[in-house]
Computed example of a mutant assay.
Amino acid sequence: MSSVWTIPYWETAYRLFMAVLLGGLIGWERERDAHPAGFRTHILVCLGSALIMLISIYGFSEFMKEENVRADPARLAAQVVSGIGFLGAGTILRHGLTVSGLTTAASLWVVAGIGLAVGAGYMFGAVLTTILALVSLELLNRLEKILVRRHRLKKIVVSVRDEPGKLGEIASLLGRMGASIRKVTIDEGDLEDDWLNISFTIRLSEEISTTQILEEVRRVTGVKEVRSG
């Protein structure tokens, strides 16, 4: 069995550079949209996973010569799969009523798997997984936006004075006008600021337009600005 001392240097370098390339491709997609974990984070996760897999396969071959010693290359790899959950959890953020970062956490988990595959020399699986991940993150994201527009989902952002009951007052107004609220995000800004930015994702009926919604919300007492997101 090969060891870290006998495996060719070019083979080690090839696998580690492939981990940087494949992890960087997915990280670049996350970086462009300013997600919590971007280009460098994905590269480091993939690179580290590949190195751990190399050590797991080739790092302990010298001990295999002893009696009653069994090799299990999957043991270190299993720790990567479970340990990546801690890093992924750090990318999941909660803003008001909205939770974001789940897709980025999933991409980190996939990148860790890609790194393990590269470290094991399974390049076909690693490259194909990278392609499929990019398709899921990029093309399906565009498809989702198209479907959102088709179903008349609109986003409006309301800058309102931080007073009790304002969120409920605006939500009630939207309901009376026939708009169905799908998601609400609250940006509190600075603690000393008296204003809140509330984002509503709403589904409009055929009888009402976004312009009508904006005009009615502007009339609410305490509203400073309303815009379509």
Rank of each mutant, 00 (worst) to 15 (best):
G165R: 11
I57P: 08
I202H: 01
S56A: 08
E66D: 15
V160R: 05
I114Q: 03
E31M: 03
L196C: 08
S3Q: 01
L173T: 08
F200H: 02
P8I: 07
I7K: 06
T210H: 04
S82P: 00
A106P: 04
S205M: 11
E29P: 02
I208E: 09
V110N: 08
D187E: 13
I156S: 03
A117I: 01
V184H: 06
K65Y: 08
L139V: 15
V20T: 04
V148D: 06
W5D: 02
D33W: 02
P36Y: 07
V184A: 06
L167C: 12
L16I: 11
L167E: 05
L153N: 11
H151G: 12
A112G: 12
V184D: 01
Y9Q: 10
T104P: 01
P164E: 15
L132Y: 13
R219K: 15
L47I: 03
L191F: 07
L108R: 03
D162Y: 10
E225G: 00
R70L: 07
K166Q: 15
E67F: 12
A19P: 10
E67Q: 13
I202C: 15
I55G: 07
L191I: 14
R40P: 00
T210P: 04
W195I: 13
R218Y: 09
G189C: 13
I213Q: 02
L16K: 09
H95T: 10
S61K: 15
V111F: 02
I198A: 02
T129V: 10
L174Q: 09
S209F: 04
L204F: 14
H35Q: 09
F86A: 04
V80L: 01
V111S: 13
A126S: 11
D33R: 06
D190Q: 07
A105Y: 13
Y9D: 14
G48S: 03
I43L: 04
L97N: 14
Y14H: 09
R40C: 05
F124Q: 09
L116E: 00
A74S: 15
T98P: 08
M64W: 14
I208S: 12
L153Q: 11
G48T: 01
E66M: 03
A50M: 06
V20Y: 08
L140V: 12
P164N: 10
K183H: 08
